[in-house]
Design a protein around this nucleic acid. Structure first.
Lengths: 292, 292
DNA sequence: CTGAAAGCGCTTACAG
DNA sequence: CTGAAAGCGCTTACAG
């Protein structure tokens, strides 16, 4: 050991990997297309940092890969087939993505950061429907009666679940759903808000399926001369940092992204060790600010 | 080749790495401490994605490592000493960080995403001083005379350079500098703005060294009943997405982070191939919006 | 030009 | 318990 210290010896990683057939490296695959919604999200860096910290604690390394195109998807598959990683964590998976099934076929432990269409992939998800219902009930408590919703892109489970939660809560309280389509971008939120004002000028509340769209909606409401929250109350989803510095500041359903990331890492590490594969659902909470 | 296809053969990566002594893998080391400013920055995801794309194009892999503490710094050093990577790209380096020197001592090709105290490390940097000067001249053209600055944390080169650019521009036009210290967070921008209003109630413009602080300053100005831009003009730096949806929207010096990331990757790949190591300075441009 | 051998630097069963 | 040998799956000089 003295010699080790004196000579600064460090074991060669490739040689060790070769013989042990372990790499202590996990892939984080961001499946979002280039113009995709999730990885441009303000929460992306939170998620990546939380994953990185958790893997470091476990003594593992993180290889970050984008799967933005068919070509890069192939690269990911080949890299993983090359035995470079012990497992993979998929982020921002669209419902129709062929990648998860391909990885499972290679017998690689795979976990998804959200619900997917591949039934045998363990995942960690937010309680999207519950969060949306919480938002609706909060608006009802505030005395709102005509509550519209702006959806995310419906090919994403999160977007569908948030819409379902809104719909269910409206139905349960005997109300009619008022829905405009968005795609999780601020611009789409603004456009959806414009459309809602035209179609349903009597509305007195809006539930936006994420904060970026809520911010777009706030802007349009301001331009249209509607006061928030006096005339129209607005609730967002995710509680990104910007939610606290819009004017008025935005009530939002907080997505515990860092906790979700940590849970996903644990699920993956457990899976590699042959542990259970039950999905994990993260709770969320409503953060009430000036907009409601 | 038919057999390769039929059997789905893929070369074993570890065996190949062992014999070739190349890994085709580069480390991206985020040197920011846990509460650090840079990696919580909205631009972090932009940078990471741009690097990832560029490495993918070059057929390289990306290992993401955090160096948030002495312990994790040691881990980074050991990992790199283990020969797992062909080079390293350092992000968010503080002036006093011992990591770059340690890596250079291991004869690893290293490039920094900003200027550092290690003289022999090639880097890519923004024209921070030039950007700050542009902001000041823009404010002067708008007829502003008492222009204050809010600085970033001065242990960061970016922050010092932006301050220097402001100071120089003020001096060149025979004006007195008015400076309040911040640390690149929104909160610190708000605090600095409060202090400025107290110390220099006559000020008619503020140059904030980044957008987050400018957003904090906008809020305080609003609370203090100062109209922007009528009473006080505000310029930020970085042009993060939020700059376009504050009210009023924020004039800002755009930092071309994606281009900077691409340039840093090229510099590193060139360095590995024995290419030149000249620093690269990225130009920036002023994006004029409602706040000036 | 083709094919067998040596060797990269480890770990792990196995012999002494 | 210690120490030498085999082998992980490649690449690359080298012999035929």
């Amino acid at each position: 050991m003295r010699a080790v210290h004196e000579l600064g010896y460090v074991p060669n990683g490739a040689a060790r990997n070769l013989v042990t057939r372990r790499t202590d490296t996990l892939a984080v695959v961001v499946c979002d297309p280039p113009q995709g919604v999730v990885s441009d999200d303000p929460l992306f860096s939170t998620v990546v940092r939380a994953i990185s910290r958790e893997l470091e604690t476990a003594g593992k390394r993180l290889v970050l890969m984008l799967a933005e195109s068919d070509q890069s998807r192939t690269r990911v598959e080949q890299y993983i087939a090359g035995g470079h990683v012990d497992g993979a964590l998929l982020i921002a998976l669209h419902g129709t993505d062929p990648l998860p099934a391909a990885l499972v076929r290679q017998h690689l432990p795979v976990v998804s950061f959200n619900r997917t269409n591949a039934p045998d992939i363990p995942y960690v998800a937010l309680d999207n429907a519950g969060g949306a219902a919480t938002a609706v009930h909060h608006l009802l408590e505030r005395g709102r009666r005509r509550i519209a919703a702006i959806t995310g892109p419906l090919e994403l489970y999160e977007a569908r679940e948030r819409l379902d939660g809104y719909r269910q809560a409206m139905r349960d309280t005997g109300r009619r759903s008022i829905v405009a389509l968005g795609d999780f971008t601020r611009i789409s939120g603004a456009e959806a808000m414009r459309q809602l004002l035209e179609d349903e000028p009597q509305l007195d509340a809006v539930f936006a399926s994420n904060d970026l769209m809520a911010i777009g909606a706030l802007r349009v409401l301001h331009q249209a001369g509607r006061r928030v929250p006096e005339d129209v109350a607005v609730v967002g989803f995710d509680d990104i940092e910007a939610a606290s510095y819009t004017s008025p500041s935005l009530t939002s359903v907080r997505s515990p992204m860092a906790d979700q990331a940590t849970a996903a890492v644990h699920l993956l590490l457990g899976l590699i060790d042959g542990g259970p594969t039950d999905p994990v659902i993260m709770p969320n909470e409503l953060v009430i600010r000036e907009s409601t």
